[in-house]
Amino acid sequence: MKRHTSRTRADTRRSGVSAQQDRKLIFLIAGVTVALLAAAAAFRTLLTSQNHDTVGGPYALTDGYERAVTQDDFRGRYTLIYFGYTHCVDVCPLTLGTMSAALDELGPKGRAVTPMFISVDPERDTPPVVQDYVSRFSPRIVGLTGTDRQLRPVMDAFHVSAGRHAGNGSGYLIGHSSLLYLMDGRNHLVGMIPVDSSSHQMAADLSRMLPGS
Rank of each mutant, 00 (worst) to 15 (best):
M1G: 15
M1D: 13
H4E: 14
S6H: 08
T8M: 11
T8K: 09
A10H: 05
D11V: 02
T12W: 05
T12Q: 12
R14Y: 00
R14M: 01
G16F: 05
S18D: 14
S18M: 12
Q20M: 14
Q20S: 15
Q21G: 05
R23N: 11
L25W: 09
I26E: 15
L28V: 02
I29F: 03
A30G: 11
T33K: 12
V34P: 00
L37Q: 03
A38Q: 01
A41Q: 11
A42M: 09
R44T: 13
L46D: 10
T48L: 04
T48D: 06
H52F: 08
P58F: 00
Y59K: 05
A60W: 06
D63G: 09
Y65N: 13
A68R: 15
T70S: 15
T70F: 10
D72E: 14
D73E: 15
F74Y: 15
R75V: 11
G76I: 07
Y78H: 15
L80G: 00
I81D: 06
Y85D: 08
Y85I: 05
T86A: 08
H87A: 10
C88Y: 07
V91G: 02
V91Y: 02
L94G: 05
L96W: 02
T98R: 06
T98A: 14
A101M: 08
A102K: 00
D104G: 04
K109C: 01
R111L: 12
V113G: 01
V113L: 07
M116H: 04
F117L: 09
I118K: 01
I118C: 05
S119K: 06
D121P: 11
P122Y: 11
E123Y: 09
E123R: 12
E123L: 14
R124V: 02
R124I: 03
R124S: 07
P127S: 08
P127R: 08
P128A: 07
V130T: 11
Y133Q: 08
S138Y: 06
P139M: 04
V142W: 01
G143K: 04
T145K: 07
R149V: 13
L151Y: 08
R152A: 15
R152L: 15
V154M: 14
D156S: 15
F158C: 14
H159C: 13
S161A: 15
A162N: 14
A162M: 10
A162T: 07
A166M: 12
N168D: 15
L173A: 03
I174E: 01
I174M: 07
H176P: 00
S178C: 12
L180P: 02
Y181T: 04
M183Y: 04
M183C: 10
M183G: 05
D184K: 10
N187L: 06
V190G: 07
I193D: 07
P194Q: 06
P194F: 02
V195T: 14
S197N: 13
S198V: 01
H200M: 07
Q201H: 04
A203D: 02
D205C: 03
M209A: 13
M209P: 03
G212P: 06
